[in-house]
Structures are given as structure tokens and as C-alpha cells.
Design a protein around this nucleic acid. Structure first.
Lengths: 163, 163
DNA sequence: TCTAATGTCTACTAATTCAATAAAGTATAT
DNA sequence: ATATACTTTATTGAATTAGTAGACATTAGA
């Protein structure tokens, strides 16, 4: 029942990009994104690349470039991201809705294991397909404000005031 | 969010041992247990060994020997088994109740990812720690009877009537 | 125009986990 | 005795996970 680092890093990156957007930052470099939690830069880069191909983020290249969300946060469901990076939500293939495949039991209709795992997959999907990135970003920012934690990305990378 | 073959085989074996017990079979050999679904015998043997060390099953050795449940089915929760064979239920270590460990975020109290994953872990645990082997065996057997599917292990291995 | 910062893309690899196999040994019913 | 079955430890092959490396393209600003 495990989320891989890949899925984890993807979600962390998206959440941070979401906060950045809310705070008015146009885009964020990978190094800034990974710096907060000391994540492996090149690995996260790969993951962001994948998110870009899937249409969740886009980039601006060159100096002072970076990544940014290119889809409304409310339309990015956590479940989609987990499926994209880590595969189906169901613990066992025969319980998957989006990637069904037979498994080893001889008779699915009378398989107790499948029955339980279908329940589990539905419970997971009910959470992950309901929560959107917008929900998470909102709650996170609210908590940070309440506890007076400074929001990340608050000050633009290049002393924006000037000019 | 994946259950490994190890966890899967363990649960299948326990469910089958549960049915066997209900049907009056004293014990079942590994080959009989794996035969139903063509599972790898030696691998399942290892898993049963582990279940034995953990006190869920016991064995009778020698000819006509085999495995049997040595704990009331109602006291075997599915969650315990999954944890034993596959590790914590939580998708991410910082969301685990039984095996908590810090993860990469700098501030857990304000981590959106953790928040979601705690929900997911609770949803999973609510199912797997509530269902017992007895529940699953009961439902499975009821369905099989309803649909007139012959129950496995119905006839004892050696023509028991004699003697 | 030059340079530093940044994303792009492909290839490679190290580590870990998963899934299984092998084999020599022990116990027991008949 | 002997066939059947569990016991135990070692080994291995395959897949997945998690990352590294490096050459290249693009852009901002001095």
C-alpha cells in the first residue's frame, strides 16, 4: 500500500507550484522546488518532465525560467497524479476500475480476497479522486497562515520590485 | 498502493484454511492449497512458515500432514496479515500509525501531502483492521452456497469414512 | 556578443525488493 | 521401509525503484 518516491515527489512539486501560483509567482525553477526538502534535483526534473508531457505543468526555458501549473488546480485530482506516476490505486489488479486485469483466483465472483480489495480500492479512490490540488493547497496555506509560518515563494526570485 | 504476491498468497492461504476448517477438514497440505490457483508451491511454503512463526497457523508433519489455523478466525484481522507480510498500510511512512517515521517534508504539521495520506491510511485501516478472516470466510462460503458452487476441501483427503 | 542559469532529453546504473527455486534434512502414517 | 509432507537456509533471476550523468537548447542580462 505504498506511494513511491516518484509519486511523492510529483505531488510535492505540484503542491508547491500551487502555492507559488497563489502567491503570485509566475514560475519556479527545479532547484528552488527541490531545495525546500532537499530532494534529488535531476530525478525531480524527470518527474516534472513527465508531468509536462501529461499537460499538468508547462515551462519557461532559459535563465530565470522554471515550471508552472498550466491547468486549473481544481481540475487536478490527486488520484490522477498517483495513477500517472505510480499506477493503479487498487491493491490488486482484479480490483482496479481503471486498469482491470485478471489475477490468480479461479473464480472472481466468489473470491473473498477480491471482495475486500475492491472495498479498499474504493475507499482510496473516494479520497484521492475527490481531493483536488486546489483543496490541498488551500488547506495547507490556511494552516500556514494560521500558525504564522511564512509561505514559500513569497518573494519573487529576482528582486522584482526594481524596474 | 499495491499488495505484493506475498501478501496476496498469504491471504488466499488463510482464507482457504478458514474454509477448510468450516468444512471440517483438520489440515490441508501446501500442494492442495496451491493447487486450486496454481500458485508456486515452495514460495507459498515459505509464506506459511512465516505465518506459523507469527502464530496464525500450525502444522502436522509427515505423511497426510498439513497446515491448519491455530487461532480463532474472528481474531485474525486482515490488516495484521498485510502488515506482517507487506509492511505498513500507510502510503507514506509519516502517515503510519504502527510504523511512523519522518519523511522528506520540512514541516509535518503543515504538509498537505501528509494530510491526504493520513486520510488514505485511515480509510485503508478502517477496512482492513475491521474485517476479520471470519467475516471473509463467511461471506465467501455464503456466496458459494447461494450459487451452488461446490466448496473446496469438502471431502477429506484420505477416504476418511473408513476406520 | 558572451555568459550564466535554466530546462530538454536520453542513456546508464546502483540499490532494493519481489518472486521464486533448490536442496538437504526431519517427521510421520501406513 | 517408504512415500509423503513439512523445515530451513541459501541462492538467484527479474523487475522496479531511485537516482546520476552528460551533452544539448534556450533565454536574460551584462
Amino acid at each position: 500500500m505504498h506511494l513511491t518516491k516518484k509519486g511523492e515527489y510529483a505531488l510535492r512539486a505540484l503542491i508547491n507550484l500551487g502555492i507559488a501560483k497563489e502567491v503570485g509567482r509566475e514560475h519556479v525553477s527545479v532547484s528552488e522546488l527541490t531545495g525546500l526538502s532537499q530532494l534529488p534535483l535531476k530525478y525531480v526534473e524527470q518527474i516534472l518532465h513527465q508531468l509536462r508531457l501529461a499537460g499538468y505543468v508547462d515551462t519557461r526555458r532559459g535563465k530565470y525560467g522554471g515550471y508552472f501549473l498550466c491547468k486549473p488546480m481544481s481540475q487536478i485530482k490527486i488520484g490522477e497524479i498517483v495513477r500517472l506516476l505510480d499506477g493503479p490505486l487498487a491493491p490488486i489488479s482484479c480490483a482496479s476500475q481503471t486498469a482491470y486485469a485478471r489475477c490468480s483466483c479461479p473464480d472472481e465472483a466468489h473470491c473473498g480476497l477480491r471482495m475486500v480489495m475492491v472495498d479498499v480500492r474504493n475507499a482510496i479512490a473516494n479520497i484521492l479522486d475527490r481531493y483536488s490540488l486546489a483543496d490541498i493547497v488551500e488547506v495547507t496555506m490556511r494552516k500556514m497562515r494560521r500558525d504564522k509560518i511564512p509561505l514559500p515563494f513569497s518573494k519573487p526570485e529576482r528582486a522584482a520590485g526594481r524596474a
